[in-house]
Amino acid sequence: MIELSRLRQVAFAPAHTPDIADALVTASGLRIDADRRRGRGAGLNPSGRFEEERREAFDDGWQSLEDLEPFKTEVQVEKPKTAITRNESPDLPFDRSINPYRGCEHGCIYCFARPTHSFMGLSPGLDFEAKLFAKPDVPKLLERELSKADYKVRAIAIGTNTDPYQPIEREWRIMRQILEVLQKANHPVAIVTKSALITRDIDILSEMAAKGLAKVGISVTTLDRKLARSMEPRASTPTKRLEAIKALTDAGIPTAVMVAPIVPALNDHEIERILDAGHAAGATEASYVLLRLPLEVSPLFRDWLLQNYPNRYRHVMSLVRSMRGGKDYDAEFGKRMKGAGPYAWQISRRFEMATKRLGMVKRGLPLRDDLFIRPNGGGIQLSLL
């Protein structure tokens, strides 16, 4: 850890000094005590970017910090007006998605969805992992939207923002209800998760898959259990995810292994091993995404990297920036997922060669949209004639 005195010196260094931002993320006054955040991914809980005031916990000499309780998972009910979120992003293979939850208890330090918590007046840091929002009305809203006469069928993606099978799904079962609505309507769905909990719904998914209506992508970031527990503290272990791939494929559900995200100098050496393991488990499709560090994710990830892999910090960030035009992140469509430059090209070639050797495809057959049965009712006034 860089001492506070060192931080004061860095703060007065020339503005172009490259280590200023890197040093600031290690400020001892910003980091939450390890006992309070045990089992969490982020070490910081900074105010959201829309807040007028920034608040930090500090020890005033009266041992006040010792009285603070550990971060516990709290779930509030959110009542959205619609179930389906639409997008026009040219580099996404879907134009609609559903998010049963806001925030994610998995606590993946690299999660690009963390900045969305700022819209709720909360921190993208520990708040994102501990202060969650469940949307129990989504199944009913979904049925209502599918009932509309002008609804046009296309595959719905679930799990593209926060994980629909995060731990609180065991109690809330919102994802299970969503699948029941989609199954009844014969509506195509594509799911992404890093949780073995998805095997609970094999009964529904296997029946939908038999009709060409469902497929799954399991994210396997690393095969190193220690790295996974640090980087994705409450997600399923790598072994459990591979077992989930096998269970899904054995049930006839098309399943892809996703090497996501690829973090240079941290897990990029595992690309071939992960693909081999996924293929052995039955995966027939594969994909990858390069590490993304938008907005508040960058300082959170850099702080985590300094605390867990300080000897690799400079190397990791140097490679990240070499693929992002010298920045921590480049949001340009077409580049944000894969990066650019020699190192990004090397990763792309390695992935391509490995999948070709294994006979895996990047994208399988499209899901069917010709079996749709429009739900009756769902809160929609039916036609008189």
Rank of each mutant, 00 (worst) to 15 (best):
K327P: 01
R314Q: 14
S348G: 13
V320L: 07
K338V: 08
H315V: 12
G282F: 15
A340G: 02
S322R: 01
A340S: 12
S287A: 13
Y329D: 10
L290D: 01
E296G: 00
P294H: 05
F351C: 09
R349C: 10
R312W: 02
G326Y: 01
R350W: 01
Q346K: 12
H279S: 15
F333D: 14
E352D: 15
A331T: 02
A286Y: 07
D328I: 00
L306N: 14
R336F: 03
L275F: 07
F301W: 02
F333K: 04
G278V: 08
A331C: 02
K335P: 00
Y313G: 01
L293I: 08
R314E: 15
E332G: 06
S348A: 13
E352K: 14
L305P: 02
Y309N: 11
Y343R: 03
G325T: 11
E272N: 07
I274C: 05
D303Q: 15
P310Q: 08
F351W: 09
Y343D: 14
S318I: 00
G334A: 09
P299A: 06
Y309H: 15
F333M: 06
A344C: 09
L293C: 11
I271W: 06
D330T: 07
G339M: 02
L300I: 15
Y329Q: 13
T284A: 09
E332R: 14
A286F: 07
L275R: 01
A280R: 14
M353F: 06
M337F: 11
R302Q: 15
E285T: 12
E332I: 05
R321L: 00
R312K: 14
D328N: 08
S298V: 04
M353Y: 05
M317E: 14
T284G: 12
K335L: 15
D276Q: 10
P342I: 03
G341F: 00
V297P: 02
D303H: 15
I271A: 13
A340K: 05
A331W: 11
A283Y: 10
H279C: 12
G341A: 02
R321E: 03
Q346F: 07
L293M: 12
E272C: 02
T284N: 13
G334E: 05
M337L: 12
R324M: 00
S287I: 03
A283N: 11
E270W: 03
I347S: 01
F301L: 08
L290R: 09
I271F: 09
R321Q: 09
A344E: 08
M353P: 01
A280M: 12
M337S: 02
G278L: 06
K327T: 13
D303K: 15
A277N: 07
R336P: 03
G326H: 03
M317R: 08
I347H: 03
E270Y: 04
A277G: 05
Y313D: 05
L275M: 11
R292N: 14
S348L: 06
S298N: 11
L295P: 00
L306D: 12
R349E: 11
L306A: 15
A283W: 12
S318H: 10
S287E: 15
G334F: 05
R321H: 03
N308R: 13
G326V: 10
